[in-house]
Structure formats: C-alpha cells, structure tokens
Amino acid sequence: MVRADSARNRQSILDAAGTLLASHGDAVGMDEIAATAGVAVGTLYRHFPTKTDLIAAAVAGLTERLVADVRAAADRVDSGADPVAELRGLLEWLIRKPAADKAIKAAAAGLAADALQEMESRGFAELDRITVAAHARGLLRPDITTTDFALIAATAPDDSLPEAARDRWIELALRSVVA
C-alpha cells in the first residue's frame, strides 16, 4: 500500500514535470522539477531514478488523456456523429495543445520511446475505428489509412504560427483526406 504523502509527492512531481517538460522540453533539470513540485531532489529520485523514467511517466499520463479523447471521439462516431467532424476535433486538439508538444517531442527523441510506442498503438486502435466508419460512410478517399493520420499529426504546426495559419493547416489537412 502506498502512503498518502508518497502518492501526493509522486503526483506533484508528475504535475511539475508535465508543466516544465511542456514549456522547456527535456532540457529542464531534475532539480528544477523537484523545486517546482515542492519536494526534495532525493524524493524525486526515489520515485523516478532517471530522467527517462520521469519523462516516460509524464508521457504515460499524456497517453491516457490522448487515448481517452480519441476513444470518446470514436464512441461518438459509433453513435452516429460525423467522423470528419471528429477528425477535425482531434486535429484541433493536436495543434491547440502546444503544452503537450514538447513532452511528446522529448519522448520521440528517444527519452521515452516505449511510452511513445504505447501512445501510438493504443491511439491508433481507437483512431482506426473512426477511419473505418468514415470509409464505410464514403467520407474519406479510398487510399487513406489510419497511418496517414499519423503522418498528418507529425506535421502539425506548433504555437509559433499564428492561430489563423494553424486553422488553415487543419483545413488543408482535412481536404487532403476527405472524399
């Protein structure tokens, strides 16, 4: 059984890591994360012996949120919602959540590759439900696959572009896949 204070410390560390990784990427120091979490560095290292462990845990939390969002979109499609509208919503989430971007990029840089693969496999399974439904309704070009959406996601603009440019990117991305 985990003590309540230990569980609180772990969550504080993960919250601080998520915030700092999102804004600074993997360049953020463990000392800074501990200070932001309000714990001693030793406490941080007891929970996460390496920065890789900490980033993997932070990305795992992001994975849960992302998969839940994609699953909810797929459930809405299963209940009759427009698959293209749900894909639009997911693309909007992707480019309007720049805070998650640097944490994902840190994972992609190999610091938490297993966590990133977990995100891809679980997220793809849910996204595939939307893609299949969109194809069944004749809404996507026949050659479009779930993997194509990964490529689209990989080219998503960050928050350095003006909002109007990001909105335009969404429109162009959707035009490239819609029948």
Rank of each mutant, 00 (worst) to 15 (best):
R3T: 03
S6P: 01
A7G: 03
N9T: 05
Q11F: 12
S12T: 10
D15K: 14
A16V: 03
T19C: 04
L21A: 07
A22Y: 00
A22L: 05
S23H: 06
D26K: 14
G29R: 01
G38W: 11
G38N: 06
V39I: 09
G42Y: 15
T43K: 11
T43I: 14
L44G: 03
Y45A: 13
R46K: 09
F48V: 09
F48N: 01
T52I: 08
I55V: 13
A56C: 09
L62R: 00
L62D: 00
L62K: 00
L62S: 06
V67Y: 09
A68K: 04
A68G: 03
V70I: 10
A73T: 04
V77M: 04
D78S: 10
A81I: 04
A85L: 10
A85Q: 08
E86D: 08
G89I: 09
G89Q: 12
L90M: 15
W93S: 15
R96P: 03
R96F: 11
K97R: 06
D101L: 00
A107G: 15
A109R: 15
A113T: 10
A113P: 02
D114V: 15
A115W: 12
A115E: 10
L116A: 11
E118K: 15
E120P: 02
G123A: 11
G123C: 07
F124Q: 05
A125G: 02
L127K: 00
H135S: 02
P142M: 07
D143I: 10
D143W: 15
T145F: 07
T146M: 07
T146Y: 08
T147G: 08
L151Y: 06
L151M: 13
L151K: 05
A153I: 06
A156Y: 08
P157W: 15
P157S: 14
D158G: 14
L161G: 02
L161N: 00
E163K: 09
A164L: 12
A165N: 02
A165Q: 00
R166I: 09
D167Y: 00
I170N: 01
E171C: 11
L174M: 08
R175Y: 03
S176R: 02
A179R: 03
